[in-house]
Amino acid sequence: MISVGKSVNSQQSIVNIKKYFPLLPVYGIYLLLFLIGIIYPEMWSVVTLLAFYCALGQAFNIFLGMTGYVDFGYVAFLGLGAYGMALGIDVSHQTGLNIGIIFIGIILGLLMATLLSLVVGAVALRLRGAYFAIATIGVNEGFRYLIEGAKLWGGSEGLIYFRQLNEAMGREKTNVIVTFWADVFVLVIAAISAFITLYYMRSKIGYALTALREDEDAAKVMGINVTKYKILAFITSASMAGMLGATSWGLKYTHVFPADVFEIHYTVEGIVIILLGGAGTLLGPAAGGLLYGLSKYWLGAMFPGIQLLIFAPIILIIIVAFPEGIVGTMKKKIKGTVLERYIA
């Protein structure tokens, strides 16, 4: 949180806390998800799915929603995160660190994704609009084929490490960590991302990014260091993705194949979630994740085989009827009411 200096009086610190009121509905959703999953074990399967989609949206939103730049290659950061976990476990499973290897994996995933984002940010963020979007596809695909072609990290055969986890932590612990705690971590990442989103929104960064989103050239002329904030949002978003990949893919599936983790489809899913909910809003990704995940889950369970045929028109209707997403539209409706304070 923001450190409150000695000279700041209590009134100001209340203002500071008030700034964070919009976190309440978001955290309420995540807590509710968690509690539902815990109280009704048969609901855990839905919760895991929703947690992933919410976290994906929330992490991606920091960059895509706030800057308006589309990073098609975003999935590369998740993929590298998953590789971070895989490599972490592979390297350290015999060190006797027990559960510690999970954290080595998460940190490694975070580092690898951040490192890539630094490189991509420095190079590709010089491009604008669709050129940037497609350059990032190049990075993602290039990375995938580099791993396969140069036979890095097991090449196309990937890494499978359930056995290593068993050796390091024992069977019982592995089962619980892989199928329960991995999903809890995902929720935590969603929560952290939400906090960062709001922190950025309520600080100078947010104003700079809004200016950038509206008109990049004008913002530059006004003397805003656009590049700095753009790269900051990019790196933050990427490092969240790295952790998300490490837990929701690396830890949960206990295997990594390059063709699976560099699948552009996940980026598109992230965009869909953010837009359904409302780009650049705090609550949007959570709402979009819930909507997207629930529709997929129930339609797939109810109408196996034709669920996407039903789902596609639903997306089209929402996008035409609510061009600013659910939360975006809601925000307009509640302007001037008490609720406004809680929705961002």
Binding site: E141, G142, R144, Y145, L146, E148, G149, A150, K151, G155, S156
Partner: peptide, 9 residues
């Protein structure tokens, strides 16, 4: 190396 995969790279 695997040349075909690397052509994509």
């Amino acid at each position: 190396i695997e040349p075909f995969s690397l052509t994509r790279f």
